[in-house]
Nucleic acid binder design. Structure first.
Lengths: 129, 129
DNA sequence: ATAAAGTCTATACTTAGAATAGAGTCAAGA
DNA sequence: TCTTGACTCTATTCTAAGTATAGACTTTAT
């Protein structure tokens, strides 16, 4: 199949597919004699794996590690477990940061209402120190 | 004061200060005859305002709007209130996304333990479809 | 006088793509 | 057979918010 069909089947945009290839995440496909990329099921699966990882916000560098792991099926998967655990930690940390941010913003929002002038604005006032 | 002192007083790195100036967020300071930047209290306050906004994850584009507002002190501050409300919405949305992500990741982590081989790895298995 | 520390500009790098220009290719209809 | 539209190709530029570097210049301290 050509890149347009791969795009539809995977849900990745054509540019994104070429981008993953350029970055070395997705294997290079065969080419037709017109130099068009020609994909098979194996490459579709590779792409779906990448997409699934990205949807979990796993970085391209981490995906590279996971792919490397997949290519060594007899080794222990402890590093995969570790990677996911660390990723969960990062997500937790981000959630905490955002929750604290949210509180501050909500307090700030309460310090003003839309009927004041800029000069009297409680929000701008709080932002200035 | 020179840029190094401004950096220490504001907590922004020297590069970041120059970056904000280049982007038009921070006003251009006077220069000494050796072409060194020379800052006063007003510019320190400007920078602190920017830093405060950034710490709340307000984008540079939004900060530009806020600065524009500050320069028109007689106008209504309803647009400031609106900007903050929308920002809170974005933060809320992000928190929800991350919470859902967290759940998925934790379920995935439970589907495996570190004593398996890559071939049997529950995590990699789930990531493949 | 010299050395260290500070400052200057300009440029490249980061993430994960999205968007574009300009050229080449392919299939269907007139 | 010609043309038109859809598809693909590479290469380049852009995004956000900085960070890092090179090479030159200035100031400060000894």
């Amino acid at each position: 199949m050509k890149i347009g069909e791969l795009s539809k089947r995977s849900g990745c945009s054509i540019q994104t597919i070429r981008f993953y290839e350029r970055k070395g995440l997705l294997s290079k496909p065969k080419r037709t004699q017109a130099n068009y990329r020609s994909y098979d099921k194996t490459l579709l699966d590779e792409l779906i794996f990448i997409k699934q990882c990205r949807s979990l916000d796993i970085s391209m560098k981490e995906i590279e590690t996971l792919i490397h792991n997949k290519n060594n099926p007899e080794q222990s998967c402890s590093s995969v477990n570790k990677l996911i655990d660390e990723h969960i930690c990062q997500v937790n940390k981000k959630i905490k940061e955002l929750s604290s941010l949210k509180l501050t913003l909500e307090q700030m929002a309460q310090s003003c209402d839309a009927n004041k002038t800029i000069k009297e604005c409680g929000i701008l006032n709080e932002l200035s120190h």
